[in-house]
Design a protein around this nucleic acid. Structure first.
Lengths: 153, 153
DNA sequence: CCGATAAGGTTGCGAGCGCAACCATTTGTG
DNA sequence: CACAAATGGTTGCGCTCGCAACCTTATCGG
């Protein structure tokens, strides 16, 4: 356990948890990039939109923004690019003509069904470096931090 | 424990660890920003340079880039801004006139001694949401992941 | 029923970042 | 000793992102 008094006069960045979490997140993204980027030519916003639309068809840009925690302009641009690549389709909603329903196209769904197992396998291959007890402990801490920072949906 | 078969055909982003780690890192940065940003007017690169130079005086830009894992251009610009604010000073090295030794100025050191306790306290206040056992388990998993992804110095 | 306000979504713009190219200096090699 | 290659660091450029402003459509209040 790395207990540490609060009154220290120096700060080692390599031991500072916020820094380590940023570094870990970047490393993890890098580790995952090989599946969505090199193989499918998606960047992170596009990948997140694909993942969201794939599991929750007929959703709005707003819903995507909320559940991915991305800014709505970032979502808007990712959607526009995916539509240009004909991976998703948009239809104006009948009830509310401001919003547009987003769904996967045929080729989008094909990519999705190919992409998801690879992404999940990559996640597993990452987490396999942890023993079952380590994984459980890590996820418990992660959940508590998420609740504390109100990061859940 | 969130065991999950690898052959699932759908992916819930909210349960996908790489996504959750990115979200946590962003949330943590946000949580920390109040000390270095609002109070001292530093952005993240500047804050990291300050932290590094403060604990390791007379280091080079290269050393800062390596230990913060930032791109050397990002470091170069952060240093230039901190120098313009007279928080750090640079002196050309005698042995190798390409490199420049970076150190905190008087006012830089004053800011550092004010900043470090606040940052550490903020880190503690974040981690206090975890029980001691949760913290230990979380840090253990974090370390293992760091080793696996080769994120250490 | 009309005007004000809000909500879904897009776009112009400026800031920050990484890549590649560059300058200055040092090190290695014939 | 000279020249090629490597290293520390900076800068031009294009890309991405978030903010603010905007357009369109819905909703609310009188």
């Amino acid at each position: 356990m790395t207990a540490r008094p609060t009154l220290e006069r120096t700060l080692e960045l390599a031991a500072f948890v916020p820094f380590r979490l940023n570094r870990l997140a970047a490393g993890t993204s890098q580790y995952l990039a090989i599946v969505y980027q090199e193989r499918f030519g998606l960047d992170i916003p596009q990948w997140r939109v694909m993942a969201t639309v794939g599991s929750q068809q007929d959703c709005t840009a707003q819903y995507i923004a909320a559940s991915t925690r991305m800014h709505k302009t970032r979502v808007s641009r990712a959607i526009a690019e995916l539509e240009a690549r004909q991976l998703i389709e948009r239809a104006s909603s009948a009830q509310d003509r401001r919003e547009r329903q987003v769904r996967l196209s045929k080729s989008g769904r094909r990519m999705y069904t190919e992409l998801v197992p690879l992404a999940l396998a990559r996640e597993s291959s990452l987490l396999e470096c942890l023993s079952p007890e380590q994984l459980a402990g890590f996820l418990t801490g992660l959940e508590t931090l998420e609740r504390f920072l109100q990061l859940e949906d």
